[in-house]
Design a binder for these strands. Sequence first.
RNA 1: GGCCCGUUCGUCUAUCGGUUAGGACGUUAGGUUUUCAUCCUAGAAAGAGGGGUUCGACUCCCCUACGGGCUACCA
Length: 493
Amino acid sequence: MSVRVRFAPSPTGALHIGGVRTALFNYLFAKKNNGKFILRLEDTDRNRFVRGAEEYIVNALNWAGLTPDESPSAPGGFGPYRQSERKALYKKEIEKLILSGKAYYAFDTPEELAIARSESEQKGEVFKYSAHNRAEFRNAISLSKEELENEINKGKGVVRLKVAVGETIVVKDEIRGMIQINSDEIDDKILMKADGMPTYHFANIVDDHHMKISHVIRGEEWLPSLPLHKIIYEAFNWEVPVFMHLPLILKPEGKGKLSKRDGDKAGFPVFPLEWENKPGFRERGFLPEAMINYLSLLGWNPGSEQEIFSLDELVNAFEINKIQKSGARFDFEKAKWVNHKYLENLETKSILKRFPEFFEALPSTWSEKKRTLILGAVKERLNLLEEFENNFRLFFEDPKTYDNKVLEKIKKKDPEKIIDFVIELCEKEIDALEWKSLISKWNEEHQYSFGLIMQSLRLAIVGNLSGPDLFLICSLLGKDVTLKRLIKFKPNL
RNA sequence: GGCCCGUUCGUCUAUCGGUUAGGACGUUAGGUUUUCAUCCUAGAAAGAGGGGUUCGACUCCCCUACGGGCUACCA
């Protein structure tokens, strides 16, 4: 049997990183098994449809490197790949279930159901539309032939699954093993809505069957509906695919699963790309491969101590029996560390080339050599590309203030001589190495503390004690700017 | 409330009955005879609780607690 898996988001908004992780695991499983990775849009809810969401999903997957083998824009013979375009199929299939008595029409309005629901609630019970009370509602089971025809002609009915009484349903999740449940726990779920659209449960199964999906890999939130899904497969007499339910991604702290509000609150992205003016992983300066790498480690491990993986390496290492059972908290610090590792291993030149949007602050007159030099100096201290701008600022903005603590400290040690000496050095352009050797030599003659010299100069030129190698800064600034800053600083002594 | 799933350092995790319970992020302390958010070294840090099974349990079983999910004409 050939492996075919699908990622089936609904276009109701941006793709959340939990979704990206689900897509990733599907992708890894497909590639590992020489199978196909399919994208299907589950757009059966017209009320929640969001313009641009599908495009976003496609862009996000492409950016992450998880390009589907089959999708709306790359059909593969099992299309269409949007559920809204498969209505005829669902209609045909639901007829079968009605004919075989596995499903039935029902005509209760949402209002009537809401009343029934609140009545149960008042009695302290959970409302369930099922064998025990089917007859109390208006449906093909309770209505007379004439009434039924009359209702069907109005065209406002839904179709519900007819769930059997007292049967033990046994399902298997590859990650968790066998799960048993009594069919009495399951209610007569709506399969076809009044607007003629299928519900998730129905469309999902019809499509997975017709698209020859061999393995269903989805989030744990679907585990409770697995027995229901099995009943539908069996109603059709269709082969049941293999199921795996992935552990959820949880909030960094507190209760519950990760939501977009957590990101806003704590200042980390939850979307791969920008959405509604909120920067995503891409805009914050993550490399897509780093984001993927981090996400792969949430709920899965390679069984070794390796933590940095290319996509291809992940495909190779991926094993479903290494998937975790319990939810994983999102840890932005670790995500940044992974990104840092990638940055460290990437050539400076290729960073400049791949992510030009982060280097727009660099003067256009700067040569490639100069750009490479500056990024090279700063790169190792970056976690995210967005931090570059801050690190770079000191090159084009003269210090406005000087760190007072440091100023007081160096004042005690008479730093004027070294400042004057360096002012002399600003006669001609010299490179970082020369800066270093000249200042070292001066120090040998004058027996200052090298640390004090460096702190004094750094304070004068940068305004505080942070930043990359000072000699490099001086050489990149050039003699004129360096001189200007030194002279501006001197009166503070 | 009902049903289902889960539970090893603060976090992500290794361990598939016998280990000084390992690694990583974060954290702490040193070091890199200039800063530092990098890098290096070292340290602190964990089997939810209670019962079994067993010569032996983090590992298997049960109960409790806690956490998570589901409970829509949403997916």
